[in-house]
């Protein structure tokens, strides 16, 4: 992909998550890009650099849909919704278990953060439930808090 224009910076983490899941879970990669596409269009689809970037992203999404067309999670958004929500919850629960066991490490920080990004992605299917909003807020806060503690040599509470 071409370099991300500054106006679209807020979708960079969702695009990175897509890249990281390209082989591990293409359905996750597809919906992360769909979220990035929708959000990017709202942010700026007028300036030439953003249009160029978004057209390339759309090309990529269309190709992915063609390749993954047989997958129910792609052809039926209701199945896709369940897939992304379950995946986000799985990430959240892994990080939460580590947290409650007092095991603080980079992987659990990343899991909290990825869970929060995937809950953003769930919004492509409709308004987020209150429970998802709370999980997203908690996961993002925990990721930042534990990251800062480890950076400063402190033990998270």
């Amino acid at each position: 992909m071409a370099a991300l224009p500054a106006q679209l910076r807020s979708i960079q983490h969702h695009l990175r998550t897509a890249q990281e899941h390209e082989r591990r879970d293409p359905v996750v990669a597809y919906y992360c890009r769909l979220y990035a596409m929708q959000t990017g269009m709202k942010l700026d689809s007028k300036t030439p650099e953003c249009r160029k970037f978004l057209i390339k992203l759309m090309d990529q999404l269309e190709l992915m849909k063609k390749d993954l067309g047989d997958n129910d999670s792609i052809s039926q958004e209701v199945v896709g919704n369940a897939h992304i929500e379950n995946y986000a919850l799985k990430m959240f629960l892994y990080a939460d278990n580590e947290d409650r066991a007092g095991r603080f490490h980079k992987n659990m920080i990343k899991s909290f953060y990825t869970a929060s990004l995937l809950l953003d992605v769930v919004s492509v299917f409709g308004e987020l439930s209150e429970e998802n909003i709370q999980h997203r807020k908690y996961a993002r806060w925990k990721a930042t808090y534990i990251h800062n503690c480890l950076k400063n040599g402190e033990t998270p509470q």
Partner: peptide
């Protein structure tokens, strides 16, 4: 002119919106 530029931009924007709707089977 500026208005030609604007029309081109909005046509491309519409094209993106249409492709997005098609991708999501909304048209």
């Amino acid at each position: 002119t500026g208005s030609v530029g604007t029309s081109v931009a909005s046509a491309e924007q519409d094209e993106l919106s249409q492709r997005l709707a098609k991708l999501r089977d909304q048209i």
